[in-house]
Computed example of a mutant assay.
Amino acid sequence: MRIDVWSDISCPWCYLAQARFGKALAEFDHRDEVQLVHRSFELGPKLRRGDTAPIVKVLMGYGMTEEQALANEQNLSRLTAHEELGYVVDRDHGSTLDMHRLLQFAKDRGRQRELLGIFFRANFAEQRSIYDDDERLVELATEAGLAADEVRTVLTDPNVYTDSVRADEAEAARVGAKSVPFYLFDGKFSLVGAQPITHYSRALERAWV
């Protein structure tokens, strides 16, 4: 059984969903026969390198007051804590294209799942920003088992793996994925958003039939 998952590293709901789905999958009897494919989806496709800002200011740009933005982040901190995840409220937000390109590279090396988890942890649970810092991305990618010189080569050329990112985004549009996280179960049906663990468990059982 194949499950395609569209997500973005800057998406806190994707971070939460990954943890919940992971728990559901760990309890699934046929987990060893599940192929999990992570697909690229940029929440800010128009963002460019250098368009980095504190998340509270970004949320205020969408019409929230500062108090509402802080309350939103504090709520997410509580939700992630329930899944034993770290969460930094005053983190940065910016372009994730380079991270998606590295995830496509990691897919070719069989390390995509590891790198995605590391990117999520670094973005949401650690104070140091992962945006506009190639050496930080190299450090994280090597933690996932990738070769530092190969990672630097990908980061140096903005065209490398960009087509693969765009292909994933085009496929998202084709299957109706307008927001993330978006889980497509064996091409049969989808779940959108950070669902409860029980919903993922039922979806796994339903897709297996």
Rank of each mutant, 00 (worst) to 15 (best):
D4S: 14
V5P: 03
I9D: 00
A17P: 08
R31C: 01
R31F: 03
L36Y: 12
R39H: 08
E42I: 05
P45R: 09
R48Q: 15
G50Y: 02
P54A: 09
V56K: 09
G63M: 06
E66K: 14
E66Y: 10
E67Y: 06
E67P: 04
Q68G: 02
N72R: 14
N72E: 10
E73I: 07
Q74M: 10
N75R: 15
R78N: 14
L79N: 09
A81N: 02
L85A: 05
L85D: 02
Y87V: 00
H93E: 13
G94C: 04
T96L: 00
L97I: 15
R101D: 08
Q104C: 13
K107G: 11
K107I: 05
D108R: 12
D108T: 14
L115G: 00
L115A: 00
A122G: 04
A122T: 01
R136Q: 11
L140I: 06
A141Q: 06
T142S: 15
V154Q: 08
L155K: 04
P158C: 11
P158D: 13
E171A: 12
A172W: 10
G176R: 04
V180T: 10
P181L: 07
P181W: 12
F182W: 12
D186S: 06
G187H: 05
F189M: 07
F189K: 08
S190E: 13
S190G: 07
G193Q: 01
P196D: 02
S201G: 10
E205Q: 13
R206M: 08
V209R: 14
